[in-house]
Design a protein around this nucleic acid. Structure first.
Lengths: 110, 110
DNA sequence: CAGATTCGTAAGTCATTTCTTACCGTAAGT
DNA sequence: ACTTACGGTAAGAAATGACTTACGAATCTG
């Protein structure tokens, strides 16, 4: 549920692909596994990581478990990135300003 | 520069810590390495990953290379997460609605 | 110019992660 | 009740990733 676990979860290409499938529509595990060249248990393990990160959630529907996207983990991640974004922009602005000064100082001698 | 590489880069705790230090102020590699219990080459390797992802950038200053945050990779990541966020919210809303219907259908029999 | 600083890259080792097979519990159908 | 479908967990093998030491290139200093 922290932004760290969300980052770790989304770092894996297979897990990102699972998320992409779930963007289309909620899916049971078996249907999800059918779309990938890896075993169903592997998918289950990925779903566990995504679930622990609050990126997906499941509800039982008879014998099957339907997974769908969850906003929880994504919200935490977005909040973190927003603050980081502010600092990155500030660093960029500061760098541009410094560069302009350097240019102004050097230009007379070129 | 893609959101995928940004996610991979930020998945590592040490790289996140490096980013956190750079939030404070731009730093040369040696100064950065001094703050961590790992070797300087290891820091260099992390900086390469962060740089490839467009999360940091460097400029030479004499013999040293000053690293600072860069908005590029972060922007790509934020854009991706925003679209994903929309889909997650939609999925959540749809689930809540379905649940409400189920409740309405079941309540008379309780 | 010689020595010292700063940093990137290469090669190899070690740890972590991902994947597979095997197995178990639960739910649905006959 | 028996069988089939569905999916989570365990244990070990295989692939990835992070770290170390060794080395080389570029810059600064005396």
């Amino acid at each position: 549920m922290t932004y760290e676990s969300a980052l770790t979860a989304l770092a894996d290409p297979t897990r990102r692909a699972i998320v992409e499938v779930l963007r289309g529509a909620p899916q049971p595990v078996g249907s999800l596994a059918g779309r990938f060249p890896i075993s169903r248990p592997a998918i289950s393990q990925h779903l566990r990581v995504l679930s622990d990160a609050g990126l997906v959630e499941a509800h039982a529907e008879g014998a099957r478990r339907i997974y769908r996207l969850s906003p929880d983990g994504l919200g935490a991640l977005r909040r973190y990135l927003d603050t980081l974004w502010d600092d990155a922009l500030a660093a960029y602005a500061r760098a541009a300003e410094t560069h302009a000064k350097e240019q102004a100082r050097r230009t007379p001698f070129d």
